[in-house]
């Protein structure tokens, strides 16, 4: 069982954010979480956190289709930044397009591709290390 202190959700869909937060609370998934509403918002906030050695999230749930900066663009920028902590990234998308799944495989930092909806079970499996 892994211990997650800080979880990060990058998603533009308020319903998903509401649901994911609630599920995390219900399952005791983490102690706290931060939310960014698109890739740019996330990069702009995470970058200084990483550079100033502030506490970083243990995991990131990353949506693909977002306005301004999408999930792929976020990943491309994110992997350029030196991190003092290992961050596990899960892509959480409702796309079941095989092209997206293949593309996700190309990123070393991406642990898995979770097809929405996420459920309590999904979160448990992340905690249990089986995802």
């Amino acid at each position: 069982m892994r211990k997650i202190d800080l979880a990060c959700i990058i998603d533009d869909d308020p319903i998903f954010i509401f649901g994911a937060k609630r599920m995390m609370e219900l399952s005791g998934f983490c102690n706290s979480f931060i939310v960014f509403k698109n890739g740019e918002d996330a990069i702009n906030n995470l970058k200084p956190m990483m550079n100033t050695r502030q506490p970083l999230p243990d995991i990131i749930l990353l949506d693909i289709n977002m306005p301004i900066m999408d999930g792929w663009q976020f990943l491309d920028e994110f992997i350029q930044i030196d991190s003092h902590k290992e961050i596990t990234i899960y892509i959480a998308s409702s796309s079941i397009d095989p092209i997206d799944l293949k593309r996700a495989e190309r990123y070393e930092n991406v642990s898995n591709y979770i097809i929405k909806p996420i459920s309590l079970n999904t979160l448990k499996r992340i905690l249990g290390g089986s995802l």
Partner: peptide, 18 residues
């Protein structure tokens, strides 16, 4: 269909769970 509709479905499903 595959993405947008699915994300709405996903939300519905998740909300029901909650």
């Amino acid at each position: 269909v595959s993405h947008n509709l699915r994300s709405h479905y996903g939300n519905l499903d998740m909300l029901l769970d909650i």
